[in-house]
Nucleic acid binder design. Structure first.
Lengths: 410, 410
DNA sequence: TTGAAAGCGCTAACAC
DNA sequence: GTGTTAGCGCTTTCAA
């Protein structure tokens, strides 16, 4: 018994074999296979039978060469091992699969060179579409895509020019919600560990953080309270360690993605400190473990699956010929409140004081050295109670700002 | 300024354009591009210059059609959103990328139909290689792959016939280590939530669990202590709920993968119980959150990245013409001990008794109703102290075994 | 060492 | 409606 799909000569079964077997021309076979309406049903049936009998499977390469269009999408993302992106990938995969497209997976590691290579690959493969979660894509390649009629959409992150369709989450609003929540819970010395500022996600989350502070009449206690991480666990850990080593520490922190939150949490545990009494945390991304870590994490949940699915639909629509103006789908994140931002109380604070282990610090652990509740502004409220903290320079000046203190960007 | 890679006629730059520009034949261009040694260096240089100037990018489709071989691998896995598989994917991607292959991502959801579709796709795409983490692949398709000279290797899970190269983890040994550890820590009424028994991972982990019990002279307290889950979070939660609803509960459980462990943990938390005093847990897979969940999870850590990388190397070797007998690379898992399996002590047990919330149970929560340490056999020891527990039928018979109690397979 | 040319399997323009 | 056929861009045999 010879294998299905292999003809007598040992080669692959081709459309010619099918045409012979069905007693029709290759054109007719092609028409049947591509659902061309104007074929005699009787012939179509004969063709179908021949296809089945021979186990014929059309060559994608030949089809691609002929049509200059592979039924394939390139999916270019920074990191498949980040659950945020894999959830996105699932959304994309589901839409792609049901529309008959396959995905080439391209992992850039946020490396511009790899990103460039993969964009080149997409061109060489004649993919019909590209879904890009950009790091810093070469604009000339984007242009070439467009001039070659390759459909391309962005997801998760915008590219500066804004010349493409895309699906995003409102990161500014997400970060603002997080800050409002922290303030409402009585935290008023806030820090932010954000992502690389060459990503819109990193920038927008920081922008939201800063604008919410301002709107509430607060300002940053210390420039060193803004940390630029790398969206990786190690970066989160490193930046949290930096925050903890400050002589005057924040009482709460917004961490701009899931992996960095994990790293930050590890740094806190390693320092023998407690969340939220020593440091409250709001993360970004509601990963599956958030509810069972200690303590359960408050976070800004992103609809990652839908983000992917929406971007795939945008792409599909372009491939199907839609030629209107650019569309940007903006999805709304949700604040999920758990225990990592439990109401601030000096009682709680005092109870958890850890002896000995803490890095040498003046103001910390003392109970009410700060956080006296004065700045506890209502979530909706405008700037009614400007915190005088910016002026308490006696403490401020002890901040370790020298070496790595002030680095608003990196 | 026209886009790179587009010639005057608006079409793509082809090998013919390059040949003209360099004043050579297409054959020579092809030779240069493919590193054929016997070309005049002067000509080669001219060709290279033309390539650069024109921004020429070879058409993969044409090449594939001609050679019947796409520089592409199909990567067929059950679930991209499972970190175990994404870590594997990273290992595969890194090897593939540096060898110049791209990956088509195929997500089967452990669905035989999707798996079949993707294997068909791999054939139609003329991929040169397939890496398969099998669910229940159609053997005839595997045969067809082989007869078409498509290289194929398995990863993570074996297919029954064992006719393919593959990279695996020693799951039996991993489960055995876990059981030995639990026994050494004083737990002696062990349960296991394993995966689908049509996967070797699900079967092997259960086998290791059972064989380690036997080797230590123990047997299963109750057939209902073996639960067949689905490797998903929801399944872990469901099966843990089932365990918790038994009138006589286990004091420790081995859960056969990361997502189910998460689900199991959630079920325990939801029931108001504590780990490990009410139920110790050993999970499989050391996911990044294991160290910060509450309590930190003991687990059998798998080298997932290396698993992927090894399978990719096996594939590469086959593609490069290796034709020896089948090779199976077996990697060794590591037990990582954390607090979810802290030494069993009745003191601990009593302290954490939760009032009221517990489901109605006779034997539980009472302190020393069991776990008196009698069966605490040494990790290395043979079966010296057979637990008499299998005979305490008075309690046994109250086990809720009726509807879903006894289901060794599903 | 280099070039000419056939042909991989398919689609679509054109002819009937 | 159906068939004939050119040609997508490349590799590779064969001849020079």
């Amino acid at each position: 018994m010879r294998a299905r799909g292999v003809n007598q000569t040992g080669g692959t079964t081709t459309i010619i074999d099918v045409a012979h077997a069905a007693g029709v021309s290759t054109a007719t076979v092609s028409r049947v296979l591509n659902g061309d309406a104007r074929v005699n049903p009787a012939l179509a049936a004969r063709v179908q039978r021949a296809v089945t009998k021979l186990g014929y499977r059309p060559s994608r390469a030949a089809r691609t060469l002929r049509t200059q269009q592979a039924r394939v999408w390139a999916l270019i993302i920074p990191d498949v091992s980040n659950p945020h992106f894999t959830d996105m990938v699932r959304g994309i995969e589901d839409v792609a699969y049901s529309a008959g497209y396959s995905l080439i997976l391209c992992n850039t590691d946020a490396d511009a060179e790899k990103e460039r290579t993969y964009l080149e690959l997409a061109l060489a493969e004649h993919v019909v579409g590209v879904i890009l979660a950009p790091t810093s894509p070469d604009p000339s390649l984007i242009e070439e895509m467009l001039s070659r009629k390759v459909s391309i959409v962005t997801v998760d992150r915008r590219i500066s020019s804004g010349m493409l369709d895309g699906a995003f989450v409102n990161n500014v609003a997400g970060a603002e919600q997080a800050v409002d929540h922290l303030l409402a819970r009585g935290y008023c010395h806030l820090a932010c560990i954000t992502g690389p500022t060459d990503t819109t996600t990193g920038r927008d989350r920081l922008d939201g953080f800063m604008s919410a502070l301002r709107r509430n009449g607060l300002e940053l206690d210390d420039p060193a309270f803004v940390r630029i991480g790398d969206f990786r666990e190690s970066g989160g850990q490193r930046e949290m360690e930096a925050l903890l080593s400050l002589s005057v520490r924040p009482d709460a922190v917004l961490v701009a993605n899931n992996l960095m939150t994990l790293g930050a949490l590890k740094a806190i545990v390693a320092a023998g400190l407690e969340v939220p009494s020593d440091m409250a945390i709001v993360g970004f991304d509601d990963s599956s473990w958030n509810a069972v870590v200690h303590p359960p994490l408050t976070c800004v949940a992103q609809p990652a699956y839908d983000l992917g699915a929406e971007s795939a639909r945008l792409l599909l629509s372009r491939i199907d010929g839609h030629s209107g103006p650019n569309r940007e789908v903006m999805l709304v994140p949700t604040l999920r409140i758990r225990e990592s931002t439990a109401e601030r109380s000096s009682a709680t604070h005092a109870r958890h004081t850890v002896p000995g282990i803490r890095p040498s610090v003046d103001d910390a652990g003392g109970g009410n050295g700060r956080g006296d509740g004065k700045a506890r502004s209502p979530q909706t409220g405008a700037a009614t109670v400007p915190t005088p903290r910016g002026a308490t320079s006696a403490l401020q000046n002890r901040t370790t700002r020298s070496t790595k203190g002030a680095r608003p960007t990196r």
